[in-house]
Design a protein around this nucleic acid. Sequence first.
DNA 1: CTGAAAGCGCTTACAG
DNA 2: CTGAAAGCGCTTACAG
Lengths: 349, 349
Amino acid sequence: MRSEDIAKLAGVSRSTVSRVINNYPNVPETTKAKVLRVIEQYQYEPNSFARALAGKRTDTIGLFAISMNEKENATRIYQNSYFAPIVDLVVDTANARGFYVLIHTVYSPGDFQKIKQAFLQKRIDGGILVGTQKDIELVRELVSQDAPLVLIDYDVSEVIAERLNKNHLAIINSMDYEGTAEAIEYLISLGHQEIGILKGRMSTFSGRERYAAFESTLLNHGLTLRQDYVLEGEFLKETAYVETEKLIKRGKLPTALFCSNDDMAIAAMEAFAKHGIHIPNDISIIGFDDTQLASTISPKLTSVRLPIDDMAKSAVEKVIGLCNNEEASFSNVSFPTRLVIRDSCKLIV
Amino acid sequence: MRSEDIAKLAGVSRSTVSRVINNYPNVPETTKAKVLRVIEQYQYEPNSFARALAGKRTDTIGLFAISMNEKENATRIYQNSYFAPIVDLVVDTANARGFYVLIHTVYSPGDFQKIKQAFLQKRIDGGILVGTQKDIELVRELVSQDAPLVLIDYDVSEVIAERLNKNHLAIINSMDYEGTAEAIEYLISLGHQEIGILKGRMSTFSGRERYAAFESTLLNHGLTLRQDYVLEGEFLKETAYVETEKLIKRGKLPTALFCSNDDMAIAAMEAFAKHGIHIPNDISIIGFDDTQLASTISPKLTSVRLPIDDMAKSAVEKVIGLCNNEEASFSNVSFPTRLVIRDSCKLIV
DNA sequence: CTGAAAGCGCTTACAG
DNA sequence: CTGAAAGCGCTTACAG
């Protein structure tokens, strides 16, 4: 069933069928109704490729999940508590707006080619990039072609410094700096003076932000930052576990440990438990991300909730807006985090 | 950059460029090399829509996640421990085979239309349907058009009984019946004689299979099936929690409880914990699915592991095979589960 | 081995 | 208001 067939059945030309389908104003209600009836009856759907080829959009956006850390179990990206809700919200929001979502994972630099391809082959109108280690050169190439692009969790100053073409570009972040500061302030308000940190991967924007906020909040309060309380966790459970055990073996513990994500917080809790160190009585723990596990483990973990829902929804709105040319050509929005207080931190007297 | 441009630059015709791109045998190495060099140099990618329109495939498969249970938090489908790994494996497997994945969620019967549309608009070469309550009428419509289709977790006898056109159709299942039987046999081998069940949603294939296996394994061993030990859990945490509390209030407990999924097992554990009933000393618990949480909670949950990886990978292989017409027109494969023994079941003496 | 031409199924100025 | 025609960028018999 092609538009030609519909045209014949309705006694009009293909042009008119097309006008009806695309809701052009200059077609009288009666012809419109006539055509629509036939379309309805035969469940006609215009061929999306022919449409796109003839100049219409594809009504498809790309969602590219980048995970290039060899240490992570690379084949489990959508089970990750960070990616999963993003997929959820992006797909739902896009679907609700009548867009399809093409989803692709990037595990190696070679896979970046696939992102470019999706654009060059005109498979998508725009794309959302999420995950660690976005390749600035790829981004440069994409934006130089005016491909509508949204970056989630990206350092804006890098974009500025690199003098990227900022047309059709949007950047979505969470306010990790402020969120971390709030968490540390909370610990301080409980009376903690000796606070340690499990750092995230410093090659990521969020890893750097969380550490920077930790450092400056301590300094602002005149607290000392002991280097043996600074653990390189790299956002990974295994690394965090090992580092925590090293800390324990060194003898002296901080009274509180800020963990740059929940995975590491849980690993630390396991390490402490194994050595008979009780949470929160012996040491207070605070996580980041507020994953599902945070409220499930015992004791329940106090954590900083990431505004993933807002970020994902906003990313879709932005990319659709950019495709429609109804968005300002460059935007940069950050959503606030929220400290969720549970049972893993203790008041010091 | 169009094939025409490449042709000019390489000093050949569009036909030849096309032949090179599609790897036709009848083009000499030297012309091939000449053309490839230009393609390389300009990073040319053929327009996917023009290709598809001219008869080539789209190299895209659809993944449709169906979740129509109003009680579930419908907007969280990809965070579900069942869907998330399927998305993972489907996307990865498809990407590795050079296919893109179009992903769409179905929350209401109206959304089914979107699946049909994706096919009618020729956006995809084939599709994978996963989730509860697949609409048999939709499936009938799709298969009647010979759309390559793979159904995950679907009752084969229904397909047979409904006399569907089985061309270009494949069905992938897990061996829930055998898995459940193994779990119950295990409990019996530990000495349990009074075994209860938290049932899944009986409108789903897996819900029915798991219950049927429970029932017949008890009977096979001459054990009685007490109706007050049969709880309607509907696969939901909340329902399971309420039903477990009712069981507790009734006074007499079974010595073991088989839960048709881990979510319900965890809810039951919470209910028992609240009433001071100890696991596994007072009651043994066994779950199904072996989700991430099973190995995290305390005590660690014994559970039946679903072969989700095999299922998802196989689904992609099947759908690609069907698109290539290299698969038998109908197939039906089931993968075995595996009982993962942890700490939630006790030997009875 | 290779090019000219038709065709895939739409949209959109253009002309009326 | 509406149709004939050109064009989107490919592929593929067809002819040579």
